[in-house]
Design a protein around this nucleic acid. Structure first.
Lengths: 338, 338
DNA sequence: CATCACCTGTATAACGTTATAGAGCCGCGT
DNA sequence: ACGCGGCTCTATAACGTTATACAGGTGATG
């Protein structure tokens, strides 16, 4: 196929080992020979065979970021940050799509794929504590976003309950009383949905507002379409909400659309808040108030932790890190600060 | 590290070669031994080391899809389709972000990365014919989307000029006369922008409308923000347009936002059309009329062609394939058909 | 002048897999 | 009885790299 070490060695009149040492500096090489070798490399256009290097070293320099939906802008934005950070550390990050499929998540954890990847950053939505524990500890893993706790792996996330609190407090502060939640989920899946509902309940209680089952809308998935349908159902209630908190920005954007179609004014009739701070929310009409996680921090930290584990460092500090978030007030709650 | 062929061979009391043959059926194995080997594999949980396999076979089973922006939903939607198709064919697709950077595109073409990837699907925006030609022909490459012609590689795209025509014809048909274009680009980059401008000009001429330089807005990039800024500039003209055709949906969505901010009604005052049919455009207020490329066809065809080349088949048919597109009329041009 | 340490460079054995050549066995036809 | 083909299986040489053990030469030191 391509040019290999042997070709370079012949051309430069040195041994294989010397060329290898020039390439990756494992041992010092005399200045004269180094130059001869370097010249041969340039002339023949050599680049090392990563497969062979992998076989020998046991590392590929590849890490994976596995997300439940490639088409959710939140993950795309996170991925761009993570890719850049990985490049800085000399790694290549590849994207993996679990499609929120339990089998796909298990396959990644199980690690038949692992043989070609040095480590995995996973946003799990269908697996829980036990499945993560089954993973062999030697296989570096960083969890992001969802609520799988008490496992011997790094875990980076926002405090979902607190984030939810902040959103509801804001809605209460602008005078809303009938606040709906869109994006609850049945069963044990999607831990973060449960946590966000919990924050919603607690904040309502703290504000002295009643918790109404009918104002918590379940969805099958968490896209725009799901948000739109749920909002339509909420509007069909005898006494519709005066505010909506969406599980994420996509759901909230779907709700915005349903409100526009039904002729309701936002925020006058219904205020809307999401979570994620995807760029799209800055361009909707009205612009979307949201809870903004620090994506830069999450992406960079996830990659740095993973690389540290791969390279065997004993990482100090707690396994679970909660990254900051802030409330971005925009038109959909009538009090833009941006 | 993990379990390897030798472990299985010992456990099953056979040779390495036999285990290998059981695993990938290169040569037939007797039924009794096959079962013994299979049992050992199951018990020890063996999975082949892809690095070693790669080294021996020269293939990794990995293909890459390189796009200029991970955060453009068009590419995310395309990627989901391509990933699924690759999986069907037994390949794993990894995403690569060129960030519309010439260096990144060159690095991919040059193929220092190639050693770990069997083939590449590239959406080039900063490299042209010569750079693509410099790639060694043995390295499978499929181009998508942009206009790099006359190279010995498969190329899958829509007819940008015709797509542009269709958009403008629609705007003319609903009575618009001052039609602007957002997303022209200086210099030789972004071939598709040039083609779309050309279609715009031709269609204007065909409709007997004058071509006005001032109605063609340049942008540095092709996101929502660029579209919004360009639209603001257009509105500041003494005689603003009554319709806008955006280089893509993101640009058009930015234009929608600028129009909403300035208090213009869409489509009554200004009609808006984009290209790409990203999901977001179905939820904007108003929903976005767009030229919809057949993403499914593009994604699947790109993967299938690439895999065929990797596996050495003499692919019949022309190298360049133009996939179909259609006009989706939605609220932003006042005549929804969906 | 002998000894030792040091510095450069070389030869070679892995890493885990697959493809090739060939070994052993059985039954069949001559 | 002998040879021959067909069927299983085995032994082994690659693939391209890196790490280890070692060899040769030089300069400093006693």
């Amino acid at each position: 196929m391509g040019v290999n070490l042997k070709d370079i060695a012949q051309r430069a009149g040195v041994s294989l080992a010397t060329v290898s040492n020039v390439v990756n500096g494992y041992r010092p090489v005399g200045e004269r020979t180094r130059q001869r070798v370097q010249q041969a490399i340039d002339e023949l256009g050599y680049s090392p065979n990563l497969g062979a290097r992998h076989l020998r070293r046991g590392r590929t320099g590849l890490i994976a970021l596995a997300v439940p939906e490639l088409t959710n802008p939140y993950f795309a934005e996170l991925a761009e940050i993570a890719i850049a950070e990985a490049a800085v550390l000399g790694y290549t990050l590849v994207m993996e799509n679990t499609a929120a499929d339990r089998g796909a998540e298990l396959a990644l954890l199980d690690g038949s794929r692992q043989r070609i990847i040095d480590g995995l950053i996973l946003s799990p939505v269908r697996v829980g504590r036990e499945e993560v524990l089954a993973r062999t500890a030697g296989n570096p893993l960083v969890l992001i976003g969802e609520g799988v706790f008490d496992v011997p792996h790094d875990h980076i996330a926002i405090d979902n309950v607190a984030a939810s609190h902040a959103a509801i407090r804001h809605l209460v502060a602008i005078g809303r009383r009938r606040i709906a939640f869109i994006g609850a989920t049945p069963g044990g899946d999607r831990q973060s949905a449960h946590l966000r509902v919990r924050g919603y309940r607690e904040a309502l209680a703290a504000a002295g507002l009643p918790y109404r089952q009918r104002l918590v809308a379940r969805t099958d998935a968490f896209g725009r379409l799901d948000g739109m349908r749920a909002m339509r159902d909420l509007l069909a209630l005898g006494d519709p909400p005066d505010a909506v908190f969406g599980y994420n920005d996509l759901v909230a954007i779907g709700a915005l659309r349903a409100l526009a179609e039904a002729g309701h004014r936002v925020p006058e009739d219904v205020a809307v808040v999401g979570i994620d701070d995807i760029e799209e929310g800055r361009f909707t009409a009205p612009t979307l108030t949201t809870i903004a996680p620090d994506k830069r921090e999450i992406g960079r930290l996830a990659v740095r932790r993973l690389v540290a584990r791969i390279e065997g460092a004993q990482v100090a500090g707690p396994l679970t890190v909660q990254t900051p978030f802030r409330l971005l007030r925009r038109e959909s709650t009538g009090t833009p600060d941006l």
